[in-house]
Design a protein around this nucleic acid. Structure first.
Lengths: 119, 119
DNA sequence: TAAGAAACTTAGAAGTTAATGAGATATGAT
DNA sequence: ATCATATCTCATTAACTTCTAAGTTTCTTA
């Protein structure tokens, strides 16, 4: 059996949290979504994100360091792609959860506006 | 067509990032894993997390505000559970991604230690 | 080899999140 | 009512992340 470090410093939970934490930025989520469709150059991403080269590189570096991206260089451009297709799955599940969370709050908002009719 | 706000402030990407960001803490990941097995009281979670009541409440509040937890009160205790079973799925996919990321870095470590044999 | 384009790095300021400790509130039992 | 227990909130401070701007490296082509 594994000894149990305090959760806050247990490497297993720290690693899992790290994965989510790195995904926890709008630009990085968008980068991953763009890469779901296939490989893209930094310049291409930069244009689509409407971001400067410094910001683009920094966000790509965070994802690369996490180990979920691969890159290849071609001339002066660098192309990035997803290393693991399950990242697409993760994004898809997240989207579903978000949709249900949002529809719940929509429903709540509706209930507050017009109370339920009698059955 | 939807007008395109800058990604950093586009509500769609901000919301998706927010979901991941809230999951991005070791204690919150552990809380969700515990709740995958079913409802639990705050006190029970607190003991298993080896955390004080303030910390436990604050992390539960973050998950509750995100909209992925539900709670009911019974006497002096409050019981929390997952609102959406897809959260379990999200954790499972994350675990798979992590396993493949880790095995890649293990392999790399091995390659550095003993270079590949000739074919 | 000088100029230009593409990507990356670094450093510091600004902004955000987490940990801690003290205190508030709610429920049930005496 | 008083007390004990469970949970939650708030304020402060410490730790971390993000943004911006400037500068570096790498590669290509004139």
């Amino acid at each position: 059996m594994r000894g149990h470090a305090h959760v806050r410093s247990d490497p297993v939970y720290v690693a899992k949290a790290q994965l989510f934490r790195v995904l926890g930025h709008p630009v990085r989520v968008r980068i991953l979504e763009l890469l779901v469709d296939g490989e893209r150059s930094v310049g291409d991403l930069q244009v689509r994100l409407d971001l400067d080269s410094s910001g683009t590189s920094q966000h790509l570096a965070a994802l690369r360091q996490l180990g979920i991206l691969e890159s290849r260089r071609e001339g002066t451009s660098t192309y990035y792609r997803l290393k693991d297709p399950r990242v697409s799955q993760l994004l898809a599940v997240a989207k579903q959860i978000l949709a249900s969370v949002l529809s719940d709050s929509q429903a709540l908002l509706g209930d507050l506006t017009q109370p339920p009719a009698a059955p």
